[in-house]
Design a protein around this nucleic acid. Structure first.
Lengths: 338, 338
DNA sequence: CTGAAAGCGCTTACAG
DNA sequence: CTGAAAGCGCTTACAG
């Protein structure tokens, strides 16, 4: 069933039917009513490809994220989808699996007009932003969220990572910790730097010397991370707290502590950035810095639609920072050591 | 940059260029080489809408799931995406949020040729399959996974829910449980019935009378579920074990036990269907029946592509059942009660 | 208020 | 081996 057939049924021209369906002011109310009724009766639906080809608009956005089996990203996608569905947009999803080359390939794929805009969170392996510059050159609206690159000129949505890392570190210090190890995953992105900076500044402003700062470089290799943590916990300069910059690392710490029979929080306090819904049921329950993932998704999508719908808006650099929440649980409880 | 411009640059006809790019046997190797080189140089990319319009193929599939902030579905989507990416397909994602009306609206949306096929897991509210019949009538390839409706004639991928529920119940019985409460979420789908049937059959074959079976109807309302569980645990006929048919309910049980100071596994054993990655870190660690979510996603997608690529294959009813795994942890440990 | 016509950018059957 | 032409199904500027 296409416009041509529908027009024939109605004894109208194709253009009249098309206009009626798009509620054009050129068409009388009576004609519109009959057209709409007939279209419904015959279950007519506009061909999206013909429409997109003609209008040069896809009514589709792309979401490019490192992974999906991850609480933060699945919550963010939930937020993205909620706004997109409201506005009648379709959502294409692409996973980079933390692979820079895949990320580049995907951005290339998206340069042919398939989508009206792109929401993106960069992979941890991303080493430069040439691929993002290409997107910008092609004038495709782009909004980055969470894993953001400072060096690119586009709207960004993230959380107050510096501030919450600062507060989290202070929380540890208040609860008696003096040797706090920060588990980082370094990359091109500023996000991990910001968290690290918050940690370092908190040490400094609390009179802890810089030699007290322990920054442990982790990777995406679970086993390597665990042996790093194990080594750390067995060393002479064993920390009294661990600050995990990402969720996975906090769980690795739990794993190692279970194995080494290190008691949390008595022997070691643990805090981590995490969107784990079950943090409260862990043994012991985990103190987390929880980002507003759902809201970040919604916010990023709202901004993207502003750019898509008002051309030229692209030039406005919008940077939105949402507040994370520190949820204090057992893993950082002050315990009198006997 | 379109074919016309590219053809002009090359002093060839549009059709020759198009054929060269699609590696047609009608074009000489030499011409192909120059065309491909030029296309690369000028960064030419085929317009997907023109191509889809002409070929009546979208190279896109839709994934319709109840929710995404859920370990099972995010793992399944991971599997789906991995196969789709391999094959060069795009993945549209739609969430029903467990709302039958939304599910219907989405299936309507997908009838206009936007996608070459649909992967779907039904909402818990889905009350009939008229919308699925429409999809079938329109000859759009459809594969259901996990939350499947028995009554529709299409390929299905699910887990051996009956068998694993049977085994799980037997595990509880072996560990001394006699009064096992089964928390179900009933709906039109057979999935929960299968799990329930496994539970009931295990009781029967172990000589436990049918009055020992306790089936508690839960809902999607967390607070209601918790008060149901609370009532149950405070009642005279307090169970010695709870079998949660879905992950959320198991966590609700943990919540209530924490509040009522019921000790798991001493006072109550808990087992549940769950894809929780942190099940092992819970307090106590949770015994789970874990579905192969990633593999189910991959399998369903492979079948979908078989149908898309070989027409007529649609008629073959493929039903694939994958094995779940019971991972025994502390929450079902036999403990001598003093 | 309605219709004829051009054109979005491809692909492919057909002619040469 | 290459090209001219039709057509996928729309939308919209233009004419009436």
């Amino acid at each position: 069933m296409n416009l041509k057939q529908l027009a024939k049924e109605l004894n109208l021209s194709i253009s009249a039917v098309s206009k009626a369906l798009r509620d054009s002011h050129e068409i009388s109310a009576a004609t519109k009513a009959t057209v709409i009724a007939k279209a419904k009766e015959l279950n007519y639906q506009v061909n999206p490809f013909a429409s997109s080809l003609r209008k040069q608009k896809s009514k589709t956005i792309a979401v490019v994220v490192p992974e999906i089996a991850n609480n933060f990203f699945s919550l963010a996608i939930n937020g993205i989808e909620s706004i997109a569905q409201e506005r009648g947009y379709h959502v294409l999803i692409y996973l980079t699996h933390e692979d820079f080359q895949k990320e580049i390939a995907i951005t290339k794929l998206l340069q042919n007009g398939r989508v009206d805009g792109i929401l993106m969170s960069l992979s941890s392996q991303t080493a430069n932003i040439l691929h993002l510059e290409e997107i910008k050159e092609k004038q495709i609206p782009l909004v980055l969220f969470d894993r953001v690159a400072e060096s690119i000129d586009c709207p960004k949505v993230n959380a107050d990572d510096y501030k919450s890392a600062l507060k989290a570190t202070e929380h540890l210090i208040e609860n008696g910790c003096r040797n706090i190890a920060f588990l980082s995953i370094s990359n091109y992105l500023s996000i991990s730097n910001k968290r690290m900076k918050g940690y370092v500044d908190a040490l400094r402003s609390n009179g802890l010397k810089s030699e007290n700062s322990m920054i442990i470089e982790c990777s995406n290799h679970e086993e390597n991370n665990k042996s790093l943590i194990k080594k750390l916990l067995k060393s002479k300069h064993r920390p009294d707290a661990i600050f995990a910059s990402v969720e996975k690392l906090a769980l690795n710490v739990y794993d190692v502590c279970k194995e080494l029979k290190v008691n949390i929080p008595k022997d070691l306090k643990v805090i981590g950035f995490s969107n784990l819904q079950t943090a409260t049921f862990l043994n012991p329950s985990l103190t987390t810095i929880t980002q507003p993932a759902y809201e970040m998704g919604r916010e990023a999508t709202s901004i993207l639609f502003k750019i898509i719908e008002k051309r030229g808006y692209n030039m406005i650099l919008e940077k939105t920072t949402l507040k994370s929440e520190i949820i204090i649980r057992e893993s950082t409880l002050a315990v009198s050591k006997k």
